[in-house]
Design a protein around this nucleic acid. Structure first.
Lengths: 168, 168
DNA sequence: TATTGTTATACTCTATAACTATA
DNA sequence: TATAGTTATAGAGTATAACAATA
């Protein structure tokens, strides 16, 4: 652990009070996280929630959520992919991708085209309006990314991308 | 962007093929992420999923999930907190905390004690078995943390904690 | 009036299982 | 028999709203 002078450490023996049932108004800043401070998962989770909320808000006008954006981006860059290929690449359950594509197809952003060589599978393509829309989404997503940069700093964001490059 | 030679960059003009409906068997490693590569949120989300899965697996024998662990840890370090205080500190909806505490109380790990000074609120405490159990959970959580360290490296994990110190 | 805990609803996401039509 | 897409279900998690008891 490298973080120093954390809140938890200001509560070295928090259980001293034999308080039972008494009201204890806590200043939220005084509530120690104890062992959570040493867990990367805790901070990563809180950060991920912050990022997604900003993404959803920034792309709110076009009603696109992070998972929808990732699906559209991958189809746009790799037209003709099957649903299985997209699901595997993005770590989405194939059952869930069905509903995601239903929604994107209803919005006329994506088409499912029956494969001629393997009639079990669909080749996924963006529609022409889908291509246009995705370009707009990418512009807004870039704006969101600038919010991330403003939040944690330019260098920290770049380090983060390097550290997590294996999780893609 | 600092990540170099990414997969996306190996697909400079991916839409060249006017392929429509043809089968295209893709090697999963050949599917480019395009713009996703530049989004911190994408990597953070994939990493967070990996971490939670490892946590759930490592603490599977004691049937404790990340959120339950965070609630128990905060109550253990700050006995007497109200439900509102815990919910605010951890960013959990108070409505959801009700169910989490119902489960932890049924398992005799936590007690809700009526406050005498504010009869609307409950003071939260670990039971004696709860204290013992939490010590065991912390040992297993530390083991999980070593898995994280092994996955991304000791220095990277420490940098990550520093970068995300604000999200706690 | 405002707050604490509770109940309820809806929607997202994850994890399965089973079904169909193809291979 | 195995795979692609689909349908269905269950549980976690998020986001709300409304209610009773209490402040």
């Amino acid at each position: 652990m490298t973080t120093s002078a954390t809140r938890a450490e200001r509560h070295p023996s928090p259980r001293k009070r034999a308080d039972t049932g008494a009201a204890r108004p806590h200043d939220p800043d005084e509530i120690g996280l104890d062992a959570l401070v040493g867990h990367a998962g805790y901070a990563v989770r809180r950060f991920q929630i912050w990022i997604f909320q900003d993404f959803i808000k920034t792309l709110g006008a076009v009603d696109i959520r992070p998972t929808q954006y990732s699906v559209l981006t991958v189809i746009g860059a790799n037209p003709g992919l099957s649903q299985m290929a997209v699901a595997k690449r993005l770590g989405i359950e194939r059952a869930r991708l069905v509903h995601l594509l239903d929604s994107l197809e209803q919005r006329k952003l994506v088409r499912r085209i029956k494969s001629k060589t393997d009639r079990r599978s669909h080749a996924l393509h963006l529609t022409a309006p889908g291509e246009t829309a995705l370009a707009k989404f990418k512009t807004l997503a870039a704006e969101h990314e600038r919010h991330v940069e403003a939040k944690i700093g330019k260098e920290n964001r770049e380090r983060l991308l390097e550290i997590l490059a294996g999780f893609t």
